[in-house]
Design a protein around this nucleic acid. Structure first.
Lengths: 208, 208
DNA sequence: GCATATAAAAATGTATACAAAAATACGCAA
DNA sequence: TTGCGTATTTTTGTATACATTTTTATATGC
C-alpha cells in the first residue's frame, strides 16, 4: 500500500485540493501508476474517512470541520477509556516495555507528521492490546487514524507535542503504580484536553 | 455496489465458508464478474469489518465470536446514547413521522434478514439524524451494519423480534412525552438487553 | 430569461492480459 | 521423521483497453 500512504501524506500536507473532486487519471499520472491501484487506494481511504464522496461518482478531500474533530474526541474518550479499563489488569511488563520503547522513539525528532501520528497510536495500542478485544480495538484504531488528519493543527499552531509526551510518561508511571482509577481518569483527561484544544482552535479558525 | 451487497447477503446466510481464505477467482466466477469489482468489494468489506485478513494476502469471513458481539453492543450503548442525547431536543414531528412510517413497514413480515436489519437501523438513524453529527452518526452506522451479521441469531433462535418492536413503539411514545431522561435510559436498556441476550447465546453455543 | 430535454465529453466501472508476490510442494540433509 | 532451502504453482497486484455511467454543454420550447 504505497500509493495509499503517499495520498495520505499529501492530504496531510495540503498538497491536494479540498472540496473538489479528485480525478483518477490525474492521480494515476501524479503517482506514476495505473488507475487500478489508484481506485484501490481511493476506496480504502474513503472507508477510513480520509476521503468523502463527491456526487454520485468521485471522491474529494473533505474540509476540516470542528464538529468532526469534536465527535472523534468524544468517541475516543468514551471508547478508549472503556478499552483501557478492560486492559488495565492484564498489562504486564511486556506491554510496558514495548510502550517505553515507542515513547523513546517518539522523542526522536525528524519524524514526518504521519509517522508521528502512527507512533502515537502505537503507544496507546500496545497498552490496549492486553484487553484482547478485537472489535473494540479496531474501532478505536479507526478513530485514531481519522484523528491523524487533524494532527497538522495540533503539532503545528497548537504546539501540543511536548505536553502530550509528558502525559504519556505520566500515564506509564500510573500504570506502574497499579493506580487503576488514577490512570483511567488521567487518560480521559488526556484525550478530552486534546479534543477541546483542537475543537476550540478549529472553531476560532472557522469564524474568521 | 451490487456485488458487494450480494457478498454481504451470502455471508449473512452462511453461503460462504468461514475461516478459510476467499479466492478472488472463485468469487468472480460465482458472481459472474471479473476480478476487479471483486477486489473493490473485498476492500470495502474488509474496511467495514465484514471480512478480515487471512495471512499476508487474502481475506476470509470471520468466525462468530461472542467477544465481538459484546464489543459491538458495548460500543452501541455508549455511542448511540450519546448521539441520541444530542439529538433529543431537536427531534420534531418530521422525524417522528418518518420513524412511525418505518415502524409500520417493519411490522410487515416477508422481509429478508438483511432488509430487516437495514430497516431496523433506519428507524434509529432517523431519530439520530436530528443531532446533525456526521462523524458520530457514521461510526454508529458502521456498528449497526456489523451487528447485522449476528441478526440470524437474534431473529432466528432467540425470537427477539416482537419484543424489539414493542420497545421501538415505547421509545417513540417517550419521545412524544418529551421525557428525555426516560427515553435515554430506555434506549440504553434496549441496546444492552439485546446485547446481553445475544452474547449469552453465543457463549452457550461456543461451550458446546 | 429560465427550465428542461438532448447530445457531446469526460469520468468512472469492468474485462482481459501480464507481472509480482505469496503459498505450496518437493527434495535433501541432519 | 523433521527442518530447512529451493522450485513450482497458485494467488494477488497492476497495466491497458473497452463499456457504461455521469457530468457538462448546448439547443429548444415555454
Amino acid at each position: 500500500m504505497n500509493i495509499k500512504e503517499a495520498i495520505k501524506e499529501d492530504i496531510l500536507n495540503n498538497q491536494l485540493p479540498r472540496g473538489v473532486p479528485l480525478r483518477q487519471v490525474e492521480l494515476s499520472e501524479r503517482y506514476k501508476v495505473s488507475r487500478i491501484p489508484v481506485r484501490d487506494a481511493l476506496l480504502s481511504l474513503k472507508a477510513e474517512g480520509w476521503l468523502s464522496a463527491h456526487g454520485k461518482a468521485g471522491v474529494m478531500v473533505p474540509e476540516f470541520r470542528w464538529e468532526e474533530a469534536e465527535d472523534l474526541y468524544l468517541m475516543r474518550s468514551r471508547l478508549e477509556c472503556l478499552l483501557f479499563e478492560m486492559a488495565f489488569d492484564r498489562i504486564g511488563e511486556t506491554e510496558l516495555k514495548a510502550a517505553r520503547l515507542i515513547l523513546s522513539e517518539l522523542n526522536q525528532e525528524s519524524l514526518s507528521l504521519i509517522q508521528y501520528g502512527e507512533m502515537n497510536w502505537h503507544f496507546h495500542s500496545v497498552l490496549y492490546q492486553a484487553a484482547n478485544r478485537g472489535a473494540l480495538h479496531q474501532v478505536v484504531e479507526g478513530l485514531n487514524e481519522k484523528v491523524i488528519r487533524y494532527l497538522g493543527f495540533q503539532y503545528g499552531p497548537l504546539g501540543y507535542r511536548v505536553e502530550s509526551e509528558q502525559q504519556h510518561e505520566e500515564l506509564l508511571w500510573l500504570i506502574e503504580q497499579n493506580d487503576k482509577q488514577g490512570a483511567l481518569i488521567f487518560l480521559q483527561q488526556h484525550i478530552e484536553e486534546a479534543g477541546k484544544l483542537l475543537t476550540e482552535y478549529l472553531k476560532s479558525q472557522a469564524s474568521q
